[in-house]
Design a protein around this nucleic acid. Structure first.
Length: 399
RNA sequence: GGUGGGAUAGUCAAGUGGCCAACGACGGCAGACUGUAAAUCUGCUCCCUAUGGGUUCAGAGGUUCGACUCCUCUUCCCACCA
């Protein structure tokens, strides 16, 4: 049991510092039912969660199964400074209202994964506000500038003469101080947070806590392209609020290789079960597609319902495997005769008539399932199902 | 503050007076093959009811029959020096 828990806890991790501490905490839980605290900090800046964010949340959920109480730390105080990690320029400061709004949307999304009854939401403003100037200077005296400049992102900015605000130096210190105040046993975060996470350990020592927190770092999840990290700005993300059909389709479109990564980091299947799936694919008894379907079904179910996920699956098979028309298509109407290229633009299937012409020439455009090739075609009165490529559909009614 | 170099389509990057809507790469879209996978092959990739027309190469002027290419100014970046 302990061994299994240890294995699940380490699953997918990029790096763990002080694994012995974690083992002892788990052992105490299994032997004596003693719980422990696990801290994770969240910047109230990104209200739309995608699967990349959930990697960390799921790891926290795993810990909850083995006796962890989560200290879900909202960095409302530190958000005013802005985490410099991985950034090449000083960040903007958020307004109070924005922060509040973000927190609400963040936590409602997070509790789809976390067990709310084993989670405490804490705000670092509640103790950092009262730290005071003396406390802050004391805190700052524990760290040298040289040490701070060891940080890659700081030194790069320093060398390239990009401004670093002095306040940014305080961020890791304050985040570390959070661990002192909360007396955290473990802290989890992304690999980009390494410096800040270690700061917690160092400060706990400076402030004479008996034990230092263990640190567990999760890797950054790749996006749909399989190469770059999942992010909204690269438009390669799967949002937790995506529609079931989109979510299902996006997962099925990832490469086989990336699928295993998703299994490791996102699935709740045990490592043994995943190994069995891998073995099945290798020896040919399982089709990779069906394994991927299972993953898509699991994840879609998590953020919607099982019924909706199954519906998404059926819809997907209907549209793509049997190339039929989807059940729901956007409808448009037009008056009088309309030129096909214009119609495609009006139905948002094409960005320009030039592009529409090209696609028609290439045979990418279908009307009522029939491929067309005449770029001069005029649509007369009637109802049409227009299709561009494999996945863009629209219904057009010409009056 | 000084001295050089640069800004070209979604990104990178050629082009140094007409052959330029602008080489190439990546990305993207489409077609073939498939499992809407990957890989591979092929085509397309500024706009416009189009064998034609229009607007583009940081911005504003100028030279020229003709400018992405030459000149002037402006803005922004980079390198080296102080």
């Amino acid at each position: 049991m302990l061994q299994e828990a240890l294995r699940e806890v380490q699953r997918g991790c990029a790096e763990i510092i002080d694994i012995d501490r974690i083992e002892n905490l788990l052992k105490a839980y299994f032997d004596e039912g003693k719980t422990f605290t696990l801290k994770a900090g969240f910047d109230p800046t990104a209200p739309d969660l995608h699967l990349g964010h959930t990697v960390l949340l799921q790891k926290m959920a795993t810990f909850q199964k083995y006796g962890a109480r989560i200290q879900f730390l909202i960095g409302d105080f530190t958000a005013a400074i802005g985490d410099p990690s991985g950034k090449s320029a000083t960040r903007k400061v958020l307004s109070n209202e924005d922060i509040k709004k973000n927190i609400i949307s963040y936590t409602t999304q997070a509790f789809k994964i976390l067990d709310e009854s084993k989670t405490d939401i804490v705000y670092n403003s509640s103790w950092l506000n009262s730290l005071g100037t003396v406390g802050l200077i004391e805190l700052a005296s524990t760290l040298t500038v040289a040490r701070m400049l060891e940080r890659d992102d700081f030194s790069k900015r320093y060398e390239s003469n990009t401004p670093i605000a002095v306040s940014e130096f305080l961020y890791p210190l304050l985040q570390g101080y959070d661990s002192v105040h909360l007396k955290s046993d473990i802290e989890v975060g992304g690999t980009d947070q390494k410096f800040n996470l270690l700061m917690g350990r160092q400060l706990q020592k400076v402030y004479d806590l008996k034990k230092q927190q263990a640190v567990l770092m999760m890797p950054i999840l790749e996006g749909l392209d399989g190469v770059q990290k999942m992010s909204k700005s690269l438009n390669n993300y799967i949002g937790v609020t995506d529609e079931p059909n989109d979510m299902y389709g996006k997962i099925l479109s990832i490469s086989d290789e990336l699928m295993w990564r998703f299994y490791e980091l996102l699935s709740t299947k045990t490592l043994d079960e995943i190994e069995a799936l891998k073995a099945g694919v290798t020896d040919g008894s399982l089709h990779p597609k069906s394994v991927k379907e299972e993953l898509a079904l699991e994840i879609t179910t998590r953020y919607h319902t099982y019924e909706m996920a199954v519906e998404a699956k059926e819809e997907f098979q209907k549209v793509h495997s049997q190339s039929q028309i989807p059940t729901e298509i956007e409808e448009f109407s037009a008056e009088g005769e309309i030129w096909i290229a214009k119609a495609l633009v009006d139905c948002n299937l094409e960005p320009s008539t030039s592009q529409a012409r090209r696609d028609i020439k290439q045979g990418a455009v279908k009307i009522n399932q029939e491929k067309i090739s005449d770029i001069e075609l005029q649509l007369i009165k009637g109802e049409y199902v227009l299709q561009v490529g494999k996945r863009k559909f629209a219904k057009l009614k010409v009056n």
